[in-house]
Design a protein around this nucleic acid. Sequence first.
DNA 1: CTGAAAGCGCTTACAG
DNA 2: CTGAAAGCGCTTACAG
Lengths: 337, 337
Amino acid sequence: VIVEVAKLAGVSPSTASRVLSNSTYRVSAETRARVLEAAKSLDFVPNALARGLHESHLPVVGVLVHDLADPYFAEIARGVEDAACASGHLVVVASSDRIIEREISYARLLRSMRAEAIVFAGSGTDDETYTHETRRHANAVEAYGGAVVHLSPHARGKADIGYDNHGPMIELVAALAGLGHRRIAYLAGPANLFVARQRLAGFQDGIAAAGLEHDERLIVEADLTAAAGADGIDRLLARDTGASAVVCVNDLAAFGALRRAAELGLRVPRDISIAGFDDISVAAQMAPSLTTIRVPLHELGARAFERVVKVLAGQRPRRVTLPTEVVLRGSTGRHRG
Amino acid sequence: VIVEVAKLAGVSPSTASRVLSNSTYRVSAETRARVLEAAKSLDFVPNALARGLHESHLPVVGVLVHDLADPYFAEIARGVEDAACASGHLVVVASSDRIIEREISYARLLRSMRAEAIVFAGSGTDDETYTHETRRHANAVEAYGGAVVHLSPHARGKADIGYDNHGPMIELVAALAGLGHRRIAYLAGPANLFVARQRLAGFQDGIAAAGLEHDERLIVEADLTAAAGADGIDRLLARDTGASAVVCVNDLAAFGALRRAAELGLRVPRDISIAGFDDISVAAQMAPSLTTIRVPLHELGARAFERVVKVLAGQRPRRVTLPTEVVLRGSTGRHRG
DNA sequence: CTGAAAGCGCTTACAG
DNA sequence: CTGAAAGCGCTTACAG
């Protein structure tokens, strides 16, 4: 209804558009003032669909995650949002639950509404259909001028904005070894996720680097949830491995491990040390507070959006690796023979 | 580029549109098949902006929250998403940090892109500008046929889909009194939030109902974060009130209280009982697990979307109040004189 | 059952 | 500095 504004201001729609959009055309100060006033009095809010149809993209960035209710992803999404809001971009969040069809369908939806960018926040998997379909939509997004950003390793390459899943794990194991632990167990994530594989490899390399004995029984398959962590502790204990420390694939699993240990009457870290990965914000609130590897999640999201801006501006930004840090807290302690 | 599809299929754009959109027009089976095949071979994905421009709304629902990184809101947003994805709706999440301007700006943005619905998930406040501007945009959304849903009490009424913030608090206090606690403290939320006020009133009514002595010193001003909860414990202890139990305005504050208590060498619940409100999913993972009031957050979100669907269908659904439940867990125990 | 035409609300070359 | 016109990609009465 910009025509109404134009009519009220006594100018043509073209002129009204020129002052109401952030075009660089020059309009006389007097005319501009009249249009602005008319717009205000009519409570005019431009139709983003009409504008988007013309420019063939909407000021929206889609963030594809595994589960928005998982703090790991919520913190990343929040980072994207904080960076995006300054330029009037909205962020749509889409949880796939790692269901391939759901993620593909979301990518398609984002493409259909010409989102300016699509950020793949969750770890990629090997699945061929997933890789192919997902890439098809991503290509289409790029074709209409949108940006595609990966925050995790995926089938077609490394993360655009990422962090090291391997190195810090070696450091963490070294720290535990330094505390006297010789039998360190690992609650692993789903083997089809690149991130889980890298973390596991980091753990194993850490064991080797620390000169500890490799023992398959110390590796327990789990998942990225608290329930899986609790269950993992049960299975580990049933194996009677003599583990004095447990490293978990992520914080959520570590929370479950912590809880289950407490339920079983094990004191942490006196009887057993437990560590996580990610440093989601509640990790520091646990009692004892969780030793973990700090990943700058909020920044990861914010940087993703910065990359989007650059890509849309025609630049070809370089890949970025954000620093991580081993944070030793109350859930790990010296091994007591 | 539906014209390309039409051309390839040898039909008019009108016909192509009729088979590609979910219109009810009848098209001969043979023609339909040819169009579908052409669409597939061209990887045709309809432009949602063009479609939306025509129908004057986009299949998007906006969820306005205080902070997406707060699990309370992340779980609600996830609920909205799960209900919305079935019908091909995308959800945009917008965190205001309770900054009025930011929330207003998000409401405007959602309006500008003709979101089908806007869900106010966070508690409303008294602020006049906030109420007025927010209502103005909400009215505009309704004017173009969109729906507006409130999940919390606000300046203009009760929640459309809500839960009781008052009654369960009385129950919780009664439960603590039943455990022998006479001196029960409360870490309160910001007084300008309706929800915080209702919870506080519930607490106070609970104290009266249990026949306990009213003592202003037992009420500590805090906020809805873990940091505020930890700080609240410090201030409570400094007052030397002899409190043996602490009820917190929400789980996050309770997490901080739990942590601070542990840091100070207080054993929970032996030395002090601590309870929260919300039952966000990590609450059950704390050690000890947190006593709290269960709010069906995911369902709250899902129901919000169901309401949206009804409103868009022209119905005038009734207000819904979801059930809550006091969940007694490990962080509260019998008072030890 | 199918097509030509108008319209959704903007923006931007193209002329003045 | 300003206006008339065309176009973005669809959908839907309106005619056949």
